[in-house]
């Protein structure tokens, strides 16, 4: 299962789900699915999200049991 810090970072950057979705070109619902961990985004979307949060993809997403930071 893929884990992520999207919710935490979105709050830190002060974005709503809709605003973040708009910035990376997806719907608010898709951001919600990612935050809940139901849905693994494509590499393209993961890269866009990482760029928005100014970090590497593997700092934003990681596999279960593999978080290093």
């Amino acid at each position: 299962m893929l884990h992520n810090r999207v919710k935490e970072l979105r709050a830190r950057f002060g974005f709503s789900q809709g605003q973040l979705g708009e910035r990376v070109g997806v719907t608010r619902q898709t951001i919600g699915f990612i935050e809940k961990g139901d849905f693994s985004p494509s590499i393209t979307l993961a890269l866009k999200l990482a760029r928005e949060f100014e970090m590497k993809v593997d700092e934003l997403f990681w596999l279960e049991g593999e978080k290093t930071s």
Partner: peptide, 8 residues
């Protein structure tokens, strides 16, 4: 509309 909706 996007990949999340395609997933649904």
């Amino acid at each position: 509309q996007d990949e999340g909706m395609t997933y649904i």
